[in-house]
Amino acid sequence: LRRGEWLTLAPFGYVNNPKTRQIEPHPAKSKIVARAFEEFAKGTHTLKSMSEFLAELGVETKNRTPLAKCSIHHLLTNRACLGFVAHHGEYREGTFPPILSLATFEAVQEVLKRKAKHRKSKQRHNFPFTGLLTCGECGSAITAQWAKGHGGLYRYYRCTKKKGNCAQRYLREDLLVSQLKARLQSVALCDEWTKKMLAKVGEWEKENVHSSQTFVQNLETKRTATQEKLDKLVSAYIDGDIPKENYLKKKEELLK
């Protein structure tokens, strides 16, 4: 860190160089990062629209859906693209080249600050069993509330009675916990059955190891080849060598 080296997996826009043990701008992804900052600095994008913009350039989740807004926010506030190394909230100047200028980065921060919404945090009640249980008599949902009694504050659970009349009354949380423990113990597997089932699972795992390794290796080879083609395609599109229609068509073919 003192030497300004990046010691972990390279952030988006960079790639790890095993020979130099340093990171360097990725030929295609660094251009995508620079383009994203330039677009967002215009002030016309939201985090959602920027996510859709990046999806067109091939920056998506593993399920081929646009990135979450929190991921976009992290990308647009990551000072690694300026050539800095982060450590415990502090930044040091790195020995790797930046992807974009400080002026562009600061312009994006101003846009983010202007668009930020101040939200009041809601006080949440700690009722661990709500949403998990239903009434055994009428099938209605179980709700909870705090109640004072015997010199203290206690959590109580009760039926919402939304499906009609129900004779069930309030139940203190410690009594509910006792009932749950008793029910779970009645359905638990004995040690002998557990050992037999685990042994059988171990046999199945050994049988599938070889075939799984071969499948993963073939899949990784195919993925690497496709990614290289996508990088070249994105780079050509950003450089203006191919029109958007041709880019989207070729991208769809590669991702099938």
Rank of each mutant, 00 (worst) to 15 (best):
residue 33 V to M: 09
residue 57 L to G: 00
residue 46 T to I: 11
residue 65 T to A: 11
residue 48 K to S: 14
residue 41 A to F: 05
residue 61 T to C: 03
residue 44 T to N: 11
residue 90 E to P: 02
residue 86 A to H: 04
residue 83 G to F: 07
residue 19 K to S: 00
residue 79 R to V: 03
residue 79 R to G: 00
residue 21 R to T: 01
residue 54 L to C: 08
residue 84 F to L: 13
residue 65 T to V: 13
residue 22 Q to I: 08
residue 81 C to L: 08
residue 26 H to L: 03
residue 84 F to W: 05
residue 62 K to L: 13
residue 26 H to P: 01
residue 86 A to N: 11
residue 77 T to E: 10
residue 22 Q to L: 15
residue 32 I to K: 13
residue 63 N to M: 13
residue 35 R to G: 03
residue 51 S to H: 06
residue 21 R to V: 00
residue 43 G to N: 09
residue 44 T to S: 12
residue 86 A to Q: 14
residue 81 C to G: 03
residue 97 P to G: 01
residue 43 G to L: 12
residue 90 E to F: 07
residue 91 Y to K: 07
residue 21 R to F: 02
residue 69 K to H: 02
residue 44 T to E: 10
residue 80 A to R: 05
residue 25 P to E: 11
residue 94 G to I: 09
residue 27 P to M: 05
residue 59 V to M: 09
residue 73 H to S: 15
residue 19 K to C: 00
residue 18 P to L: 11
residue 84 F to C: 05
residue 49 S to M: 14
residue 42 K to F: 08
residue 42 K to Y: 08
residue 68 A to D: 15
residue 27 P to V: 04
residue 90 E to A: 09
residue 93 E to Y: 02
residue 79 R to W: 01
residue 66 P to W: 03
residue 18 P to Y: 12
residue 99 I to F: 04
residue 71 S to I: 02
residue 72 I to S: 06
residue 56 E to Q: 08
residue 45 H to Q: 14
residue 84 F to Y: 15
residue 53 F to T: 12
residue 80 A to W: 10
residue 57 L to I: 02
residue 84 F to I: 02
residue 24 E to G: 02
residue 47 L to H: 05
residue 63 N to W: 03
residue 33 V to K: 13
residue 30 S to F: 02
residue 76 L to T: 10
residue 39 E to A: 14
residue 93 E to L: 10
residue 33 V to A: 03
residue 22 Q to W: 11
residue 38 E to T: 05
residue 78 N to W: 01
residue 70 C to H: 14
residue 58 G to C: 09
residue 42 K to T: 15
residue 51 S to F: 08
residue 50 M to Q: 14
residue 65 T to P: 06
residue 92 R to H: 06
residue 75 L to Q: 02
residue 84 F to R: 09
residue 100 L to T: 05
residue 73 H to G: 04
residue 40 F to T: 07
residue 98 P to I: 07
residue 25 P to G: 00
residue 93 E to W: 03
residue 83 G to N: 12
residue 68 A to P: 05
residue 48 K to D: 14
residue 53 F to H: 14
residue 66 P to R: 07
residue 39 E to C: 09
residue 56 E to L: 10
residue 62 K to H: 11
residue 90 E to H: 13
residue 63 N to T: 13
residue 93 E to H: 12
residue 35 R to E: 14
residue 84 F to V: 03
